[in-house]
Nucleic acid binder design. Structure first.
Lengths: 252, 252
DNA sequence: CGGTGTGTTGATTACCGTCAATATTAGTGG
DNA sequence: CCACTAATATTGACGGTAATCAACACACCG
């Protein structure tokens, strides 16, 4: 296996207020004031560039800050002696990293950049303080944590209840939705992760993932060219991976 | 499928301060003062008895409070049209229910009592308020949420990376540890959930769960008699389900 | 232009799911 | 208290899905 060095000397961080970057989506309620935006900016004292393959933090390293992905993308994974690794999530721009560390002041997983990326560093102490001062902000932070819980419960559903092809379909649907939320093309996407990594996330082997892509391709649902994916029949995908998007109660 | 009515007219709630019940373990740091304990008690205005099979809350119902299991046990599950149900966790005495609801002010899963149970009702508003007043309490609450995130990440590991028998072993190891944390016998336990439910949690069919129990029984690792389990070789179990308990980094 | 990492495809196998029959328990009412 | 029923659990035979092993194709990089 490769080493995953904690990233070396920083590249040049970009400039610009965080209240205007994706962080706004995470922390500011839709109807927030200018003063709240200023406060939000004051949280982020520092940014950091991480190169592809480097670790933002690793399991066991002390927890001090939450990170917001400003650009690029990450995977979070648990490595074990017996299994290898389980990927617990992929994070793209505007999403948070490191909430797992609050529990014991120590990170419980690795966070590795899938491409050259930049994160905003939000010191946890400052976050706590601001939560105490502003009820609105507190609420928003709790929402973020709660949604992460729901998200991983949905991942459990995916792992526990779906056949291979449906997992892949649900995975792609999810990526699509997140891209769309960022204002990017909803039908065309470039995967920043390998088949191996998708498999590790979905509880499948890379060959199985590859076969699923091929089958969707043959069926005319997707146009697959390595990591470039175009969704030709979004409806067919949603149907295959219906479990995560349907909000029905199975009564009767 | 059975109906899961929101529980009817309450049974008689028990008396006694919450700072002395299992809730203490959850919310009070080890070195907490008496005044903090009093404050904690002030959070819980009400208790509620839930009968076996009844729902404490259901997906879609408005979120207003977090619940702490005082006695008995629960399952939380997501029901979908296509899959049936995925159990996202089992909660026993001293554990929290309902954190999923904070995100959108609506519960995202059902919580159903596995046996006659009692919960403490902690209004979320009061919890927010106390979090703003006491940094120590705030920290503790964040810890609880964070640990729930880590817990479900570990569940993903289990679902994605382990063979059937190892899932069952890890599941039993986990139950054992939690029993032990409550000061109960670490070697003997009575399952409050059916094989079906264990299977639904572990992403397996009930027959597979049953077979695993039988194989462990034959191997002399467990003494299985329906829902009464005695662990004869804890070491063998831990070894089979090593993934969740090992804290190593897979380097080199 | 090789070489390495990544992805695709095929053949075979192992594990778990499915279907089905039986056993055991708990819960109910005589 | 016992008989009866429904729910839960065990066990077996069989089949399907995904893992494994292996060969090959393709891009990206020096």
């Amino acid at each position: 296996m490769k080493q995953l060095p904690i990233s070396g000397p920083s590249l040049e961080p970009t400039r610009g207020a965080c209240s205007k970057c994706a962080l706004r989506e995470v922390f500011l309620p839709p109807d927030s004031s200018a003063s709240e935006a200023r406060r939000l900016d004051s949280l982020v004292l520092e940014r950091r560039q991480i190169r592809r393959g480097e670790a933002l933090f690793q399991k066991g390293s002390p927890f001090a800050a939450v990170h917001a992905v400003r650009s690029g993308s990450f995977k979070t994974c648990i490595k074990t002696w017996s299994i290898g690794e389980q990927i617990t999530g992929f994070q793209m721009a505007g999403e948070l990293l490191g909430l797992d560390g609050i529990g014991d002041d120590v990170h419980r997983c690795d966070a590795v950049a899938l491409e050259d990326s930049e994160v905003c560093i939000i010191p946890y102490g400052a976050l706590e303080e601001m939560s105490r001062e502003s009820a609105a902000f507190q609420r928003q932070f709790h929402r973020v944590m709660s949604r992460e819980i729901v998200r991983s419960h949905e991942a459990m559903l995916l792992l526990g209840g779906l056949r291979a092809s449906d997992r892949v379909a649900a995975f792609l649907s999810g990526l699509m939705q997140r891209q769309q939320a960022l204002g990017l093309s909803p039908s065309s996407l470039v995967l920043s992760m390998s088949r191996q990594e998708i498999g590790t996330y979905l509880g499948l082997k890379l060959e199985t993932v590859s076969r699923c892509f091929s089958r969707f391709h043959d069926a005319g649902v997707l146009d697959v060219q390595h990591r470039h994916i175009r969704i030709l029949q979004p409806e067919a995908l949603r149907q295959a991976g219906a479990s995560l998007t349907d909000r029905f109660q199975g009564s009767s």
